[in-house]
Nucleic acid binder design. Structure first.
Lengths: 348, 348
DNA sequence: ACTGGTTGTGCAATCGATTTCAAGAGTTTC
DNA sequence: GAAACTCTTGAAATCGATTGCACAACCAGT
């Protein structure tokens, strides 16, 4: 009967194949160092016993978990889950597992990261959150038993961290300029979260575009947002309360753009008839929204893949010492139907 | 200097606190079994040395990884990422890590699962995919060194697996009946993937509703779909090619519903003016689409949380032996603006 | 003073793999 | 024919924690 049958170990295989455990181990990790006959016997023994490797034992001995930790602010956001998807794919190809940590509502994100990383569960950390306090991060990386880190989709200035990101400033400027090119002069910005690096960069690009076009930036045309649908929706009410309303809006991301449009619809404001709008990310739904959204497409899959590649490259480097990497990917303006020429009204 | 300073182990702590490693271990796992003074010295020693637990060593000794594996068909789909979010939260609360495996494009999903699970990386498996071959799964669970399994969002009939799901048949019937109640008699169904249990159940519910209303099901009104936007979009072309067009559609999920509406818009068919549509899931975007989607809301967070709870309960049971669990959660019809009374045209 | 119970601690085995070192067999080289 | 190599293999140490067992110290009850 199958009672108390324990999971087979390398010992069982060795016994069955009449070799030592050392030989079995070698047959698995470097088959060419074992003679053909022995190898065959071992294969057979593995098949018969149903042996599978105990990863914990290997990790202990090799001091390697073959696992990376991906920390994200919100898995539910399609932008992040796309990246996670690409990361998982790349990691899997290279024999790594992927642990996820959602920092979204952790009281102390840094604490959570510590708990994970520092316990040798993961060999490296892939950070996708632009809202973490740089100081905390620095401390985390400097800790005696810390772990290699790659930061994606955000940047911590002068930190020397390995980074993969898109050029948010340039892209935001491009998006805003698109509106200017369409004749808009009254352009608002639906902001991202307050202390988010990415949000700040996009805001900067927006400001740059206005500056270069000689347009003034108005405080009341900076709508508070949070990269999510709800705050975008709420911003519509604010929009309606304005004495002077903009004719166009650059939203910090697609989610908030969608919320914003949805909110405006309640007031009978239609896009692009009454207002033009540019989003950011090009989520899957953007092309299929009503109207299809003009947006800056970020190469999400590429970001994820390159970040994972970079991290694993570092891990497999002997020393984990590489010159700080900084990969900047380009975003692309996708013009759809949410932007139109400014309606005629005698404006210059 | 910090050169060659290795990460501190329990040995270092023991030496510093002048106790044995056994005592340190106990101080960490069951503090009340060591005296107060000793405990204080150990705390101090841990602080000074910067010690953190090596999870691999613990896993090896305790034969427990404190990790669960979540297998999903497509992380990018907001439905799954929401569930994953809830799972991660629950798991974290209970001290478990979460590994993700995206089965989306794995050649041999079963193989991938094996690789993971059977290597003692994860203590349990949470399966969120309705498209896996039941036979393969059975084999997987029966394997000598397999791992407890909880299946969510799908059901494998008579398998005896622990299951958390929503009653898709009833919910789909309810959704379809909503259309019937609005006077529709020509109701199509935008299908899910071919071999998906969930898709099949929703189709069954659709069929039930038609039957009970005495309406015939027409083959050409079953639009092929894949739970994704693209296939929904493609279905619109099929719709246009029909000699006799339905006045309403029940879509197997919100993503395909959105794609479908987007496709129809290209042909000037507007919802709800020309067609009514019910989706399934109530994704975040559903309430903010144009028009806001009528849909069956699935309690995603609840599904995720309960599934994770169930799995961890089983893991922490002594024997991992529990009577097969079957939790059925209710979906809720959310009526929004994508459904309307059938347009007058002299139909009865 | 002896028994029985509780408490706090240490010794040493253990989990299952990898890896260093050494050794035996066979092969090449001069 | 000896030295030098290569190719296979095994014995045993090792990774860092946990835990069964033993034992000493202390206390209470008779």
């Amino acid at each position: 009967m199958t009672e108390t049958r324990k999971t087979p170990t390398i010992q069982d295989v060795a016994r069955f194949a009449k070799v030592s455990t050392a030989t079995v181990s070698r047959a698995l990790s470097s088959p060419d160092r074992v003679s053909e006959g022995t190898r065959a016997r071992i294969s057979e023994a593995i098949r018969v016993t149903g042996y599978t490797l105990n990863q914990a034992a290997r990790s202990l001995r090799q001091r390697t978990a073959k696992t990376i930790l991906v920390a994200l602010p919100d898995i539910r956001n399609s932008f992040f889950s796309s990246i996670l998807d690409a990361v998982e794919r790349e990691a899997t190809n290279r024999g790594y597992g992927v642990l996820v940590a959602n920092l979204f509502l952790a009281r102390t994100p840094a604490q959570r990261l510590q708990d994970y990383m520092l316990s040798n569960r993961a060999d490296g950390l892939l950070l996708l959150d632009g809202s973490l306090d740089p100081g905390t991060l620095q401390a985390l990386v400097r800790a005696p038993n810390s772990v290699p880190l790659v930061v994606a989709c955000e940047e911590i200035p002068n930190s020397g961290f390995h980074t993969v990101l898109t050029d948010n400033v340039v892209a935001a400027e491009r998006a805003t300029r698109h509106l200017i090119d369409l004749g808009h002069r009254h352009i608002a910005h639906l902001l991202g979260p307050d202390h988010n690096v990415v949000a700040r960069d996009r805001m900067a690009g927006y400001a740059n575009a206005l500056n270069r076009a000689g347009l003034a930036m108005r405080q009341q045309w900076l709508f508070r947002g949070n990269f999510d649908i709800e705050r975008g929706f709420a911003a519509a009410a604010h929009f309606m309360s304005l004495s002077e309303r903009p004719t166009a809006v650059f939203a910090a991301n697609d989610e908030s753009a969608i919320g914003f449009l949805s909110g405006l619809r309640q007031y009978g404001i239609l896009c692009p008839r009454d207002i033009s709008l540019v989003g950011f990310d090009d989520l899957g739904v953007a092309a299929h929204y009503a109207p299809p959204l003009t947006t800056m497409r970020q190469p999400r899959e590429l970001i994820g893949r390159m970040a994972a590649e970079a991290l694993i490259d570092i891990l497999e480097d002997d020393d984990h010492q590489r010159a700080p990497l900084r990969i900047v990917l380009n975003s692309e303006l996708i013009v759809r139907e949410s932007t139109a020429h400014v309606p005629m009204r005698g404006q210059d």
